[in-house]
Design a protein around this nucleic acid. Structure first.
Lengths: 231, 231
DNA sequence: CAGTCTAAATGACCGCCGGTCAGCGGTCAA
DNA sequence: TTGACCGCTGACCGGCGGTCATTTAGACTG
């Protein structure tokens, strides 16, 4: 009775472990393309599968949930961002401004990064396996610690142990500033309104300036802080 | 044939404009309660309506979409946060540390604020009428400009016109730092892992310190910035 | 090369949820 | 009293994330 299944062309099968990881990677590539074309909210598994040349069910052989696909893509991109920062920090003389310029340039080349980053915590909270979430955070944590330490070496004014915290602050500022200032599509026409003028900021410029402030604030054990608590 | 409708208890009707706005407010109150109880991802209109003692369809008489309910609640809460900041800025002597302490205290009392704030941009982008989005931004923009101006008065070291930008930077940092550092439920057990130690930060402490750095960076026309571009 | 068997791939199907709308009945002016 | 207006309802719809019985590629054996 349930001969509902039609005859089907099946894709060549991924049997060897290497084939499988290639297929997994192919899905992630397709996801990236899709993220370029559509806003995050319209990212559907059906369309992802279609773009990857697979059936929807196949995607779920390689990823647990829709969010895990997105998280995997984001983890990869984040490592690339770390590469960029690492290169900048390894430059002759490290300044907040110099690093900021590199990061801002990288962001411009990867416009899909910030939307994903902004949705990241909600994904971790909502629909991602605990182990996947842990692995994601681990990948970032390891890199962040290492980069923090390297930063302290390259920039001796930094108090010992505060390198990673400085990086987190910078990342946080970047993420939050984008969420505040990047105008959603439905608002672009209205930005001329005088009371919306506040939001017409030069994202890259303001980000740079704020990063420099954080940078210098971390280097100089802040005056008004020093006298008070030092635990 | 379609006498599928059963006999029904109807709620007292909101006829007068005031009744209507009260009902609208009641829905928002119910939404707040729901946000206390459940994570944002599990916020369903069905349950919202039930908690408000209404049918699902009735909610859509007062709000256009699920996201518009959330946005309305968030707008209200944001105004409260502005009130807090305004009070802090009106204190005898304004310091970054003083304002930071007030804000952090307010955040602790309103734990549902940051998750909503983090989802805010995605909501504006995805499923909110253009006019609603504009009104939301307007409400914040007006307040932000005013508060920025007042901040410049209270804190003369600030360059003219940079008050609102400083506030935006502070808000951005707070928002981003929470997204980075506040552990999702599924990660709380794993935080003992050495490579996750980086994320075990004292949110309130790190936020305070970073805010102070931004504050002082804005007050002192940054050294390394001054010599370079000034457009 | 034919036969056998493992498991990769498929897509129809399920349940959930945001959103709709035809109909019910409370309210109030005439 | 009455009838029209309109606030409210909840069954229903469509879309989407996720499942799983079924199909069959293709590895392996003799």
């Amino acid at each position: 009775m349930s001969a509902t299944h039609t005859a089907v062309r099946q894709r060549t099968r991924a049997v060897a472990p290497q084939d499988k990881s290639e297929r997994r990677a192919a899905i992630m590539r397709a996801a990236e393309v899709l993220l370029h074309r559509k806003p995050l909210g319209e990212f559907s598994v059906e369309e992802l599968a279609h773009r990857a040349g697979l059936a929807k069910g196949t995607v779920y052989l390689y990823f647990g949930t829709r969010e895990e696909v997105l998280l995997a893509v984001h983890a990869e991109r984040t490592q690339q961002l770390f590469d960029t920062i690492e290169k900048a920090v390894s430059a002759r003389s490290v300044t907040g401004r110099g690093v900021a310029r590199q990061v801002v340039a990288w962001l411009r080349e990867h416009p899909e990064f910030l939307p994903l980053a902004a949705g990241c915590r909600a994904m971790l909270e909502t629909n991602v396996g605990a182990q996947v979430a842990i692995d994601f955070k681990l990948g970032i944590g390891v890199r962040l610690s290492a980069l923090g330490a390297r930063l302290e070496l390259a920039y001796p004014a930094l108090p010992r142990g505060s390198g990673a915290a400085l990086l987190m602050n910078c990342y946080a500022l970047m993420l939050g500033l984008w969420q505040l200032a990047d105008p959603p599509a439905c608002l672009v026409d209205a930005l001329d309104h005088p009371d919306l003028r506040v939001f017409r900021i030069d994202f890259e410029r303001q980000l740079s300036q704020a990063l420099v402030a954080l940078w210098e604030g971390a280097a100089a054990p802040a005056r008004s802080t020093a006298k008070k608590n030092k635990t």
